[in-house]
């Protein structure tokens, strides 16, 4: 074995070693979450806290389901409706902005995009009062509206970038055949949109599921999504960690599943957030 080969092997070993170390560090929190969720409270004491549970115990999960179950249902209703609506809206906006000339587009587009970076605290108090005034405060419909509206920038951006790749010639050909605005959308653009929809739906699904800010300001106990009771219990120094970790798993599972199954699209949505698609 030459010195060069040895150095090479050492280097590869170093790379893999570092990667594995990092991977372990990244997984420690999840390991702790998973083992704690299946433990009894006494087993979370110092001596056994890092061990695997001696036997699978579902008390924590039962308590978590009792505590977070209804809000988890709320989360699903919210996410499904809001995601579908905002994807549809985003698709239409993207289509218009990429394929049709809109007066003042150079000004309008950045103004739309800015909404993506808006610190929502800057609109919360008026939003809260407005939702009151229109009678939508406190319920899931109101929260859906809010997520749809503040989802417009990112969904529009993703679809606009996606449709920009559809060659204009295809639309021109359609126009020659006498297709109008709607026909071009339903016959040319929409059938090509599936990947775009997947990216947007995944993105909105995780964003809305994970949202806490709007949820805590705009819902009441009966309509709150799962992040609210979880955050309130956690910030309130709840000590029943098997229950808390079970709750965290429940709240983490849906977006995590989406991520694991369709990670590639998830990353595309992620990178779209940096504006240049």
């Amino acid at each position: 074995m030459t010195a060069y080969e040895m150095r090479r092997i050492a280097m590869r070993g170093g790379i893999y070693g570092t990667l594995v170390l990092f991977a372990l560090i990244f997984l420690i929190p999840i390991y702790m979450t998973a083992v704690t969720a299946f433990k009894t409270l006494p087993e979370t004491r110092l001596s056994t806290v890092w061990n695997l549970p001696t036997q699978l115990n579902f008390t924590g999960f039962e308590q978590a389901i009792e505590r977070f179950g209804p809000s988890m249902g709320n989360s699903f209703t919210l996410v499904i409706v809001a995601t579908i609506v905002s994807a549809a809206l985003g698709s239409m906006n993207g289509y218009v902005l990429s394929k049709w000339r809109i007066p003042g587009e150079r000004v309008i587009f950045p103004l739309i995009l800015f909404g993506m970076f808006l610190p929502y605290q800057a609109i919360l108090i008026p939003l809260f009062r407005f939702m009151n005034d229109i009678g939508l405060y406190g319920g899931i419909p109101g929260l859906i509206l809010v997520h749809v509206v503040y989802g417009i920038p990112i969904t529009t951006l993703i679809f606009r970038n996606f449709y920009a790749e559809i060659p204009d010639e295809m639309l021109e050909a359609g126009t020659m055949d006498g297709a109008g605005f709607w026909q071009l959308y339903t016959q040319v653009v929409f059938p090509l949109s599936v990947p775009g929809f997947v990216v947007v739906i995944i993105w909105q699904f995780t964003q809305i599921w994970n949202d806490f800010l709007f949820a805590i300001f705009l819902t009441t106990e009966s309509s709150q999504p799962i992040t609210v009771p979880l955050a309130i219990l956690s910030g309130g120094r709840e000590q029943n960690f098997p229950m808390m970790m079970s709750g965290a798993l429940l709240a983490a599972l849906p977006p995590l599943l989406v991520y694991i199954v369709m990670g590639r699209y998830f990353i595309r949505g992620l990178l779209a957030g940096s504006v240049k698609g």
Binding site: M32, N210, L230, S234, M245, A248, L256, G263, L270
Partner: peptide, 21 residues
Amino acid sequence: TIFLFPMALSLVVTGTIWRWL
């Protein structure tokens, strides 16, 4: 996948988990 999965979690979940840690 391992390095990116925390991105899929809610900040609330992250906070809950890390407070335990």
